[in-house]
Every structure is written in C-alpha cells, then in structure tokens.
Design a protein around this nucleic acid. Structure first.
Length: 878
DNA sequence: ACCGCCGGGTGCC
DNA sequence: ACCGCCGGGTGCC
C-alpha cells in the first residue's frame, strides 16, 4: 500500500506501529518511534555464562538484549548479543526477571554497552540504558526498584549516550531538522567533496555533472575502501561507532544513492559518449548496445504515457552505467564487464544482468529511453518483465543484459517468499524512485530487501521525505553493516541525532556522504557551476481593487484594526493570537477574492463568557486558519509549520519543535505566550484537510481584481505563444477552485495539483502537464504546499504567485519546481500584490525576514515575541 | 572464579 | 553445635 504523502505519514506510521504492537502482543520486536523516547537512566548489570558462548565483544562495544521467553531454565531469560547477533551470554537472573517484565510490556527499550572487562572469562559488566516515553518512566523505575535496582539518572560517567548539552544545541538541531530541506543540510560544505571527475573516462563533450556522476558510480562499484566507520587494525577490522570488530574485511556496498534534485542529463549525450569514445580503460572499447528487446512492442498492457523531453532523475546516467557493463559482451565475444568493473571480483563474473525496478508511471519512460538512444549496431538484450505472459524462467532472465520491471510485479511475484526475480543473482539491482520503499513494513520493501545482487543502486530525488527514518530502508537495502539491522541504526544514528547529539549528526553526515551523490542546481564541480540554468526574472504586479472591493476591504480592515489595536493596548496580542491570525487571513483572502473567506472566519471580536469557551473558540479559529491553506510560520523554527499541532493556549507549532520544548523545558511553556503547555493537551492538525468541496457554479460566480489580473496575463501569454505553460500558485485551495471557473470559460486546458490528491493522481497530473503534445494543459493550479521538493514541473516557464506567503523560502521552493535542470526557457515569475493592503505589508516584512531568521538563532525567546508583535503592528499599520 | 555460594566435616585452648 | 569455622566442590539462563 502506498503510504500517504508528506510529513503526515510520519504520524500514520507511528499509529500503525502502536496498533500492530497491541495486536501482536509478544510478536515481533517492538518497533517504536525512537524520536519520541527519552532516557530514563542507566543501570549497571552483569552478563554471565560467557564461557558457554562464542560471541565476543570489545571494550565499550554495544550489545543488544534479546528476550528468550522459551528458555527452559528461566522464562525470564534475557540473552545478550553482540553487534553481529552472536550470543555473548545472559543477563544475571535477578536482573533478568525485572528486565523481562519491562521488555515484555514494552515499557522501555534497553540498550547495553560493555564498559570494560570485555575479556573476562566468566562474567562481564554491562551498562544498561533505558529509553521510553515519559508516561512509562514511572512504571520502569517502579519495576526496577521493586527488585532492588535503582536507575542512575543524569549523565553519570558510564553513560555512553551523549546528551543534549544545553537547550541551545537542541534548538539548533531542531531547527536543522525542521528545515524543509533537511536532506540538503546533511551536505553542508560537502558538495565538492566527491571524487570529482574522472578525466580518463572522458573524451567527448560530456557535461560536467554527467562526468561526475558516472565516475562516481564507477568508483562506488569498484572501490575496495572500507565502509564508513571501519578501521583496519592490523588484521582485525574495527568499527569506531559500535566498537565491534571482525576478522574478515567488511564489504563496502557496491552501489549507493544517486540523489540528484534535478532533471539530469540528456541521455543522448551519454550514449554518444558510450558509443564513440575510447578511454584508457581497455574494457570500454567497442560499441554500445543495440536494443534487442523481444517483447517490448507487444506490451500493450502498459499505459504508454507521453514521455517528457527531459528524462527525469538519473535514469540516463544509470542506463549508461548498466549498458556499459552489458556492453562488455561484444558481438559474440565474452569480454568481461566494462567500465563499471575493470577488475571484476570473481562472483561478479557469474552475474551479468541488471534488474531495474521502477514505478509503473516511469516504466514507459525507461522503455523509450532505451529504444531511442541505444545504438543500433550492438546487441543489448532488454527484457520487460511485465504483463501476464512474462517469461518467468530464471535461466532466461539471467541471460538478459537488462531486465526491467515494476515494484508491483516484483511484489506480486514475491508474496512473502521467492518468485522468479528472487531466484536470479543479479549483477546489479537499480531502484528507480527509490524513496517509494521507505516504509519498511510494506511488502514491496521486504521483497526488495530479499533480492540477490552484487551491486545495488537507488535513484531518488528525495531520499528523505519525512524523517530520518526514511533513510533506514535505503541503508538496509544497501546492506551497510551494521545499520541494516534497525536496532543499530536507531542506537547509533537515529536516536543520537534526534536527541540533539552533535557527534550523532556528524556520523550521519559521514554516512550519508559516502553512499550518496547529491547535486542540486547550485552545486559546483571544480569551482564551476554544475549546470547553467535559463535566466529567471521576477516581477511584482500591483493590483488595484475596484471601488466596491475597496469599500468592503476597508470595512474588514477597520474592524480588524480595531480588534487588534485593542489587543495591543491590553498587551494580549499573543493571548489572542489565533484571533489575530484569523483577521489577517481574512484580509489576505479578501485581497484574492471577496468570496474566499469561509463564513465562520468572518465574525470576530465576539465576547465570550467563560475562559474555556474562549479557548475553544481560539483553537477553532486557528483550525480554520490552517484549514484555509494559509502557510503559517512556526515560532520555534521560523519555517513553515509542518505537522501542525495547536497548543492549549491556541498557538501553532511544528510537532517536532514543540516536542523539543516539552522535552527540554521543565516545566514546559509556550514559546509565544509563556503559558504552561502539556503534551496531552496538544491538538493535532491533520496536514491536508479537504475543505468542503467548493463547487462554484458559473452563475453565482463573480470575478475579482486579482482574478482579472491573472486572466489578462494568461490570455496575453496564450496570444503571444500558445506553447508557454504556467503555474498558478496559491495558498488557498478555495481560491484555486474559484480560478477554475474563468479558466474554463476562456477555454484553457488546465490541471490541478493540491495536497489532498493521492500519490497516483498526482503522478498522473504531473505527467499530463509535463507532456508537450498538442492539447496538453497550459496551466497548472498548484497549491503552495503541494509544490514541495522533488516535483518536476519544467514544462512551465511562467509562475504566477497569487498571494504572498510569510516565508519567502516556500515561494522560492515552488518556483524551483520549474526553474531547474531541464528548463529550456527563461522563467518569468509574477507575483500579484494588492496595492495598499496587508499583502503589501507582508512583502515588506518578507524582505526583512531573512535578516530575522539569522538574528533569531541564539537570541532569547522574548525577542522573538516582541518582533512578532511588531510584525503584526506593521501589517495592520498600527 | 584471586570470587560467592553450597553443603559436609568438624568442634576449647 | 538447633551454632561458627574450615576447606573442597563448584559455577548462566
């Protein structure tokens, strides 16, 4: 099942996990959300029975505890295993009785570290750390103390988990993680760290980033370097994070993640190079692939979506890599693999087939690319493993150079165990749009992990979509020891990072850096920009309201001003913050279209009786503000609110941001109004809520100045050049609905993309919009929040920003959907701003915003508070 | 295990 | 001595 999109799926998962735990009882290992766990304390125990087992540990090595309820000697038995899962011993009986209770009831997750005495013969010490949710803390402490054990709290000397040293570092980390481009923040200053280009492999005009990607992939497939965090210690290999060691050399993953956030590469260039160039690598000589695909044309079952001119993602680079290897087999002769394997390891020679798995939506894309660009004088056997008639014979499949299939087909074949694709040992498995396997519980993820391959690649523009958790599946697929086991990933990477540990973040950076190639349009190679993009220009178009609109607007404004200035005088702006936001949203909506405001938003300033009623009203008001689509700002991270939660005092924050406050402040206070806040009183606000479906019948419809301004721009554009496509962006989903009417009337073909749409529908819409065929949509109505990272809308070269956002970064991000690699035209951005309105003031504030973000780092919260009030006053011209 | 614990042998100084 | 003390056997869960 496709998990829901965006940050919201983070919550879905945790809910599902809790549920499944409850249903399973003592089934699989509990898989709680490590992000929300806190450290209860540490306890010194001992591991006994060492002489009966072979598992060894090093000083400071991490160990894991495994329950053995079936142990004949003691049903409370708790086994101790090292990083590789070999048994080291057992927890001493008395302590085990207590631990068994905690573990069986999922009260805490228990980590072990052997601080010293690793070479002992009979017993060794172990420091146990107890992690769990706040509500279980008491039960754990109670359980332990009833057996006479006392948890050590605070940072005692033996605690190996670094703690958040101070609130400041926590806020720093929170900020880092709250940034939408969390993934890119992992790459700070690392962009140029890659192996550069491999000049030897290049002799035709290959674009710099193509050279870079290809040579990087070659290095990854052939490198004999140790995986990250391993050291050669005179014959023994030593892991610097877990302190474990092994005798045999840990194998680095042959492969990695190609995470370019741009429509990369012109395929023909690569193929040109593959065909014509002669490189120092002897093995690469010779022609490259003629597409020998017996069944490609008989696959009517595949929806052949129109292929965009610009191949998405890294498909072409991969095609190149894959075919390079295939091509080693020249007409008849069995030359070993080519560029990708100058010195093939023995087991590699057996397997020669590359399996490419992709979503159905891009399958036809791969096919077309292969068909169009592989040279006709070389045989390249490509088999499309799809459709009811597919050849399921593993021996046949292994004779192909490339086998192409979809996640669904592979998963259906697998159904829990095996299947033809699992009977082949592949030279290489490539996961296109690899982020689709981010949910480890999904069948397709399990199936993918079970494939046999020598080399593994992931293509994904957005490897991290929601949280660090997304990365685990990818790391597991790449078999990056020991992180392919969830426990070690959680302990060594995920939890330290979320707890705010600087070294944890450093480790994550190091890890990601060595398995990922990440380039964005601003990346540089050898000091030069990787790609040069068409120009982009930015215009603000002032919109004058009609006299009637102006009258109505002034009425609302005066009313709003009166309310807010009363709050200012009373000093209660922050207490009535939701009300203030509602007034602002109302005015902002008015600037777009008078019919935009929901009826419930229009009444303000009603004096309510009890404080409880007042609170309810404020929270309700905030829900309406968020429900309108308005991109509100989180006062903690100063970015757009993600995973919105509303406090008791009616302020809105990102869930992770407020969780951080709750964890670090005792007692916790609302960063805005300093009122007490409790985790239990937070109100979740679902990310994308369907507003009451606003069908706007043409007869009741009226225009507005801003709508007119947009329409005249669009009509003029269509007149000048009917091939120009436009993005029309608004925060307010209702506004998008309103805009449909005049678009339809003027005969514009358009599509709509907003947050409520299913992943499948989105893909369809994007595909449709990106198409260049005559009659394809000229306009896309895009909700600001749906225009997140990863979207490729290069078909558009004009962007109309219908309403200003608080956060200019969000607008930039939206514009970047079309101003990215693959864009052939100059991009023109038009922002409509109503003259003499709250919008104008928002733009002014936007300009100061970047400055404010910088200042907010490290300044005290009260400063933020005052700047917030000043901001509101500026908006209302008070 | 250079321990702890068990249980049998032993028994004033 | 229904003790203390000694010294041998013994050893995860």
């Amino acid at each position: 099942m496709q998990s829901s999109r965006g940050w919201f799926s983070f919550m879905d998962d945790s809910v599902t996990e809790t549920l499944s735990q409850a249903l399973q009882g003592t089934g699989e290992q509990p898989d709680r959300e490590p992000d929300t766990e806190i450290l209860f304390g540490n306890l010194r125990g001992s591991v006994v029975g060492l002489r009966y087992y072979t598992g060894v540990v090093n000083k400071r090595e991490m160990v894991s505890l495994v329950r053995q309820p079936q142990n004949p000697h003691d049903r409370n038995a708790v086994m101790v295993a090292n990083v590789y899962g070999s048994q080291v011993g057992h927890i001493k009986r008395e302590l085990a009785a207590s631990l068994a209770n905690i573990m069986d009831n999922n009260l805490a997750r228990i980590d072990g570290v052997v601080p010293f005495g690793a070479t002992n013969v009979f017993t060794m010490p172990v420091v146990l750390s107890f992690w769990g949710t706040e509500e279980n803390r008491h039960a754990v402490v109670q359980q332990l103390s009833s057996h006479g054990f006392k948890l050590q709290t605070g940072s005692s000397g033996t605690n190996t988990h670094a703690h958040c040293a101070n609130a400041a570092s926590c806020v720093g980390i929170c900020l880092t993680l709250c940034l939408k481009n969390a993934f890119d923040s992992l790459f700070e200053d690392l962009m140029e760290d890659k192996n550069g280009e491999r000049e030897a492999a290049v002799c035709t005009p290959l674009l710099p980033h193509q050279k870079q990607a290809l040579s990087w992939m070659c290095v990854c497939e052939n490198s004999v370097a140790l995986p990250p965090f391993w050291e050669d210690k005179g014959g023994l290999f030593y892991n610097t994070l877990t302190y474990s060691s092994v005798r045999e050399r840990p194998q680095r993953v042959r492969g990695g993640i190609l995470a370019d956030d741009m429509g990369l590469v012109r395929l023909w260039r690569l193929c040109e190079w593959m065909c014509d160039c002669h490189v120092s690598d002897q093995s690469l000589r010779g022609p490259v692939g003629f597409l020998q695909c017996s069944n490609l044309r008989q696959t009517d079952c595949i929806p052949r979506l129109r292929v965009c001119e610009n191949s998405p993602g890294n498909m072409p680079a991969f095609l190149c890599l894959c075919t390079c290897v295939c091509v080693g087999k020249r007409a008849g002769s069995e030359v070993g693999a080519a560029i990708a394997a100058p010195s093939p390891s023995p087991d590699d020679t057996a397997a020669t087939t590359t399996l490419i798995i992709c979503p159905l939506s891009v399958l036809s894309n791969w096919l077309d690319q292969l068909e169009q660009h592989v040279r006709p004088d070389v045989r390249l056997n490509v088999y499309l493993y799809y459709g009811p008639e597919r050849n399921r014979d593993p021996r046949f499949l292994s004779t192909q150079h490339v086998v192409l299939t979809t996640y669904n087909v592979m998963t259906a074949d697998y159904s829990g165990s095996g299947g033809p694709l699992h009977s082949v040992t592949w030279l290489r498995v490539v996961l296109d749009e690899g982020h689709v396997i981010r949910n480890p519980n999904a069948q397709q993820s399990k199936a993918v992990l079970d494939l046999n391959a020598h080399r593994r690649w992931i293509l994904s523009g957005t490897p991290i979509q929601n949280s660090l958790k997304d990365l685990w599946m990818l790391v597991a697929f790449l078999r990056l020891k020991p992180f392919d086991v969830r426990e070690w990933w959680n302990r060594v990477i995920q939890r330290p990072v979320t707890v705010g540990d600087k070294t944890g973040l450093g480790n994550l950076q190091a890890l990601v850096r060595c398995i990922t190639l990440r380039r964005t349009k601003t990346s540089r190679v050898g000091g030069r920009p990787l790609v040069s993009l068409p120009k982009r220009s930015f215009n603000i178009e002032e919109v004058e309201l009609t006299t009637r609109e102006r009258e109505e607007y002034e009425l609302a404004r005066t009313e709003g001003r009166a309310t807010i200035s009363r709050y200012v005088e009373e000093g209660s702006v922050l207490r009535n913050y939701a009300d203030v936001l509602a007034i602002l949203v109302r005015l902002r909506q008015f600037c777009c279209h008078p019919d935009l405001l929901g009826s419930t938003l229009s009444q303000t300033g009603v004096v309510t009786a009890t404080p409880a009623e007042l609170r309810e009203r404020l929270i309700e008001r905030l829900r309406l503000v968020l429900g309108s689509g308005s991109d509100e700002e989180c006062p903690v991270c100063l970015s757009s609110v993600r995973l919105a939660v509303i406090t008791h005092c009616a302020h809105v924050y990102c869930r992770p941001c407020i969780a951080e406050v709750l964890r670090t402040e005792q007692p916790a206070r609302c960063p805005l109004c300093r009122g007490p806040i409790k985790a239990s009183e937070l109100v979740e606000f679902p990310q994308e809520v369907e507003e009451e479906a606003g069908g706007y019948p043409s007869e009741n419809w009226r225009s507005s100045s801003k709508v007119d301004a947009l329409m005249s721009s669009l009509l003029r554009l269509r007149c000048e050049d009917s091939s120009i496509k436009s993005l029309v962006v608004s925060q307010f989903t209702r506004f998008l609905s309103l805009l449909e009417v005049p678009l339809r009337e003027e005969g514009f073909r358009f599509v709509r993309l907003d947050g409520t749409m299913s992943q499948r529908r989105r893909a369809q819409v994007i595909q449709e919009f990106q198409s260049h065929s005559p009659g394809s949509p000229l306009v896309m109505l895009l909700s600001l929040k749906a225009g997140g990272v990863g979207l490729n809308l290069t078909a558009a070269s004009h962007v109309f920003l219908m309403d200003p956002a608080w956060n200019p970064a969000v607008e930039d991000q939206c514009v970047d959907r079309c101003h990215r690699l693959g864009q052939t035209r100059d991009v023109v951005i038009t922002k409509f701003i109503v003259k003499d309105s709250v919008e104008e003031n928002m733009v002014k504030i936007q300009r100061q915003k970047q400055d404010l973000v910088e200042k907010a780092f490290g300044t005290n919260p009260s400063k933020r508070k005052t700047s917030r009030i000043e901001e509101i006053q500026a908006l209302m011209e008070l």
